[in-house]
Amino acid sequence: MATNLIVRGAPQEYELKTAAWQDLPKHLERRNLRKVMIIHGETSWQAVKGYFPDLSAYETSFYYYGKDCTDEAADHFAKLATEDQAEALIAVGGGKVADLTKLTAYRLNLPVIILPTLAATCAAYTPLSVVYNHEGVMLRYDIFPKATDLVLIDPQVLLESPYELMVAGIGDTLAKWYESDAIISQLAVKPLEIQVAEFAAKKCRDILLAESSAALQAMKEKQLNQAFIDIIETNILLAGMVGGFGDEYGRTSGAHSIHDALTVLPDSHKQLHGNKVAYGILVQLMIEQKVSEIRQLLPFYHQLGLPTNLQDMSLDLTEKDYQQVAERAAAPDEMIHFMKETITPEVIIQAMRDLETLTTDAWS
């Protein structure tokens, strides 16, 4: 477990309001920025470009980000930004777009501004990037010593984002409580920073369980409500605060280690990040022998359509697959070892199998 604690509490500026994106020129002017490079998604860009403000008074270049946040992609965009003489990078998209833009900006020591098109992760809020290889296998987290300069969130934009991505985001954010609690509960003394992280993590769980249904109904009806705004800020702001104040005590433990391990299976790439994390929560709870907690969560999972087992993710693992996943999850540098339990591949395989039995029997 980490012995040092560095607080990376928030972006330098964060604003959520309807039409927030239209204030981008004002923010650029305040920062004396004239040349900007915009890195964006593909499908998301087509859906949201009508919300993007007029930047005709600025020198701009627009680039599709590709597919993943990789070292090679960051090198590529760093070269383009240098050629364009960009003074700042702007991410318009989901978590991978945000992560790639942050990684690129860090290499160039440039300001980074993020306009999220999804509320599926806290990537817009946190000064870190999850880096993958070209096969989609997660390699590492890079944590940066500088916060994101500006986050502008327009809830109307997010209201029109894909429903299934919001569900996955809820699954991902729900892990904030279970993963941080597995670590923080071991502490005899909780510094104030840790207490803030713990508070934010518990609020994540409580708000998600109470308001997700109403927020998702808002998406179906294309009508903003307070529950939707609460879920947006839970997935982005509150979730970001957990790791921001808790550092390694508030980032990941069991659930994300299971997610990361599943990425070694090509068939798992069809599943959204948050869905695999949601499954990882249940595996973690099984390792902790918290079966009653799993049973309490199952109705919520089924209501939202989150996966409760491998079958729900259309994954049929062979013995070799189980071993490969378990060995990756139990690798010495994995954060699953922040849990108090002794973690071995055998422990993970048993938990995965027990979860299959429990969830199949419970809902057969």
Rank of each mutant, 00 (worst) to 15 (best):
D23M: 11
R31A: 14
I231C: 03
L100K: 08
I232R: 07
T104E: 06
G169Q: 03
S61E: 13
G9C: 13
Q289R: 15
P155D: 11
A57Y: 13
D75G: 03
L165W: 10
P155M: 12
D247Y: 14
V291E: 10
P332H: 11
S180E: 03
D316T: 13
L89E: 07
L108I: 09
P266K: 11
L238F: 10
E288V: 13
S129T: 00
L208M: 10
G66V: 14
D321V: 00
P191Q: 06
K290T: 01
G280N: 08
H40L: 06
K146T: 11
Q186D: 05
H259C: 08
V130F: 04
R140M: 06
M313V: 10
F300S: 02
L315H: 03
T104R: 09
L355N: 01
Q186H: 04
T252W: 01
A255K: 06
A73V: 02
F77I: 05
T101K: 08
C122A: 14
I143F: 12
L103G: 01
I153V: 15
C69F: 01
L28Y: 07
L262I: 00
L150V: 03
T344P: 02
L262A: 06
L262M: 14
Q271L: 11
D154Y: 14
G66R: 09
P111I: 14
K146Q: 12
R353Y: 01
E59Y: 10
I287Q: 06
A329H: 08
I229Y: 10
A88N: 07
I90V: 12
T43R: 14
Y65R: 04
P299E: 04
I194Y: 09
D181F: 10
H302Y: 08
G250R: 04
T344S: 15
A19N: 15
T318G: 05
L238I: 07
L238P: 05
F300P: 00
L115C: 02
S268R: 02
T318Q: 04
P127T: 12
H256T: 06
D260N: 15
G93N: 07
E83Y: 06
L315R: 00
Y125K: 00
T359W: 03
Q223I: 06
L16Q: 14
V97K: 08
M313W: 05
V131L: 09
A10S: 13
Q195S: 07
K146G: 00
M166E: 01
Q226P: 00
L174P: 01
V242Q: 09
Y14R: 07
E135Q: 15
D154T: 08
L306I: 08
T121P: 00
P127L: 14
A123N: 04
V242E: 07
L216D: 10
A81M: 04
G9F: 15
V242K: 03
R353M: 02
T126K: 12
L118Y: 06
K276H: 03
G95K: 08
N275H: 15
L128W: 02
M166F: 12
L310R: 02
G95V: 10
V7P: 10
K17Y: 07
